[in-house]
Computed example of a mutant assay.
Amino acid sequence: MFPRDFEVDADAWPPLRTRVEAETLGGYSKYRKTLTPRFETVWRDIALGYAVLAAIVVAVGSVGGIVASLVAATLGAVGIGTSIAYLQLFIHEAAHANLAPRRRTSDWIANSFIAWQVGTSIAAYRAVHFDHHRHLGHARDGERSYVHPLTPRLIVEMLTGVHAVRIFLSRAQSPQPRSARSKLPLIRGAAIHVAILGTMLAFGAWPAVLAWGGGMTIVYPFLATLRPLLEHRPVRADALRPAQSGAVTRLFADGPLAKIFGGAGFSRHLLHHWEPQVSYTRLAELDAYLARTSLAPILDARRTTYVQAFRDILANDRGR
């Protein structure tokens, strides 16, 4: 629980920052300026994601025999979808121009190595993501998968692709004008996927083709929908005034799951919403600093694990 005298929403950062500034005598602002991105860490993490993705494709594609190939394709779909979901997390870092020292270079890296996978551009994603920061929990939030109750039915719809199709159709019917240029990233992404699948077929790696298709159409959409739901969907036990916004932000414990499912800083999502421009490569340090201030009870109240958050939200939504 929050201290009894705590009167503001834990997601309302400005008053909290003022509070920390006062108790540190301006030290927080000075410390904040030292949290510059560690770009070599960013590039290493993206390279690792691609290395794992390539290794999975090669391993699955080299399996022989019908039964063994189908098993490999199924397991490979999980690995490929997870790898793509991990790599896609870095488009978020790119939205805040934290992939390279210069924003233009950061955008080029994002478009060249990340955005193509889902047929978008960093410019398009940035517009949607900034609305997420401005309107978290409200109708104008462009990233609102957390509004869907986490029920067994939704899980089945996510795993069968029904939910992904529903989202795609709703976006396609958006009243916002779409210029011919806005379709170029989608066309480019589709062309790259076709080229990848064609190369696999040329080498006779049909299990890898099945794995790529399953990873992109089922596993990746499932993970991409579930993650923000775990980050933002409130439950009755949340110690804040959630009815005003309909969303919360959480901190997730470190570990293998946090590094993959919550990579690129998503596992410390509350801190990202407090300080959007701080690179994920420095969020652990920011966490440690704020944990030594009067905000420690707030941070502790929001700490959980991905497994526990899933259980809590599932139980809460099933009980409605």
Rank of each mutant, 00 (worst) to 15 (best):
P207Q: 06
V58D: 00
D254T: 11
S267D: 06
R32S: 14
Y306P: 02
A47N: 07
E40Q: 14
I218L: 15
S106Q: 01
N111F: 10
R140H: 13
R318P: 00
R19A: 09
I46W: 15
A296T: 01
A296L: 02
P256R: 11
E40C: 04
L25A: 14
V307P: 00
H193L: 07
V78D: 01
A47I: 05
G189E: 07
A73Q: 00
R302V: 01
I313D: 07
R320V: 01
W108A: 10
A202W: 14
H272C: 08
H132K: 09
T217P: 00
I192P: 05
L154F: 09
V165N: 08
I114K: 05
V235F: 11
V118Y: 05
Y86E: 02
V128F: 12
A22K: 14
I313F: 15
Q176P: 00
R282M: 09
G215V: 09
G76R: 07
P101H: 11
T199P: 00
D317G: 05
A301V: 03
K30G: 01
D300Q: 13
R153F: 06
S170W: 06
A205Q: 13
A95M: 07
L16K: 03
Y125L: 12
S174C: 03
E143I: 15
T199L: 15
V235C: 11
A202S: 10
S182D: 08
A224H: 11
Y289Q: 08
R320Y: 09
G61H: 01
L295M: 08
A115H: 06
S62D: 03
R44L: 15
A59S: 04
S174K: 04
F310R: 06
A95G: 15
D254Y: 13
W108S: 08
I91H: 07
R144G: 03
R17Q: 07
V71P: 00
V235M: 02
S294F: 05
V156Y: 08
E143Y: 09
Q176I: 11
N98M: 11
S106R: 02
A47Y: 06
G64M: 04
A202H: 12
G137W: 11
D312G: 07
F113H: 10
V57G: 07
P221N: 08
A127P: 02
F203A: 13
E143A: 15
R32E: 14
L314W: 13
Y50F: 13
A85D: 04
H272S: 11
V248R: 11
D141I: 08
A309F: 01
P15R: 05
S182P: 00
P297E: 03
H129I: 09
A211W: 11
I155V: 15
V52M: 02
